[in-house]
Design a protein around this nucleic acid. Sequence first.
DNA 1: GCCGTTGTTGTACAAGTGTATAATAGCGGG
DNA 2: CCCGCTATTATACACTTGTACAACAACGGC
Lengths: 213, 213
Amino acid sequence: MAIAEPRFTRDLPEVRKRKLIEATAQCLAEFGHAGTSVRAVAAKANVSPGLVAHHFKGIDDLIVATYGHVGERVAEALTAAMDSAPEDSESKLRAFIEASFKPPVLDRDLLAIWLSFWSLVRRDPGVRKVHKKVYADYRRRLEELIADITAARRIKIDVHLAALGFTAMLDGLWLELCLDPTTFSRDDALRIAHAWVDDLVAGGFRALGIRRG
Amino acid sequence: MAIAEPRFTRDLPEVRKRKLIEATAQCLAEFGHAGTSVRAVAAKANVSPGLVAHHFKGIDDLIVATYGHVGERVAEALTAAMDSAPEDSESKLRAFIEASFKPPVLDRDLLAIWLSFWSLVRRDPGVRKVHKKVYADYRRRLEELIADITAARRIKIDVHLAALGFTAMLDGLWLELCLDPTTFSRDDALRIAHAWVDDLVAGGFRALGIRRG
DNA sequence: GCCGTTGTTGTACAAGTGTATAATAGCGGG
DNA sequence: CCCGCTATTATACACTTGTACAACAACGGC
């Protein structure tokens, strides 16, 4: 007679939390925000509903943690792409673009998580703070690259505005591509983004002059 | 003794539906997607819960109808701005930009509706179809303007890709400005968008050459 | 080997959910 | 003025939700 296997296994809080976060990501991808409840997450993680409440304040807290977790993985993917690119800033910026439009960044499941998180930004000040920091970091990295590229070529533009416009364009392309991959293609997005860099390097965007005052 | 006022008033289905749609918009703005239920909408419209089921299939159907309704109002606002602009395409494109970054288009409440709608796109084919059409119309209008502007100036670029990039940038700026108006300002967004047009008119975006093959 | 800590379960309960149903009543047509 | 149509209500029901609670049991320390 086989030894009865334990009815459950104990995990360190840190480990269990991670498992619950991954279950939340799967629920958001599979059922959307509306179908992602404490119980749904618990079921997906093969765990009792009470355990979720034991580790997290509620489903919103869990979604924020999920955003933080996958957000770090996205940042890692982008950083890895830049690190494996040549040393010059233009190459790194282009590597950033390439990484932005392929998995794990270009991923329908990721959009589901992002949408849920965005819907929390408005009412929860803590969430708002996290969102602000994530986007500030995101923009700062691109702004530094753009500043490098333009400085080396003696191009005088407002790099802050340029970075804002560039990130907005990347975000928009990413969002619309995740929502509906049939209207335009990944390659279209890549061509558009690379063309932006081409024009930047060629001294375009003269209209984005240095900010006055 | 005063005449007892009627306990409720009858409306034409069309009128009642519109009231329910407006109540839905308010609920999405006030409570978010999670807090927008059949009952919440009914309460907001001072109506019994059963009535909602009588006019709509469910809360998803109501959200789609709300998206359609406010989407039309947005389209009207943008069209009105273009109509009151001078006849040339550049002026119309700039009027489009101006209208995009002020109410009723730039509106946190509108984003709440958009987010809910986007979260439905993935699972509901009907919703996906509506989204596709709305965005196709949106892009086509801008593509025509861009085509006009470049054709008049003998500028050879892929207007389709240019329109894709421009709409993505506008969407991204709009989204991020609605999410967090403190990181950058409406004026920043306007400067960025107008600078894009400046560069287009000046013959920039040479990198967006005519699509090969 | 036992014991204590605590991660985990199962259950219970109140509140909220969508929806079906019969009864009500506003309002236009005769 | 009454009548019929149907928009609307009120209620009921089955289900899901979040959370509290006591009991359980896995696993490390002694």
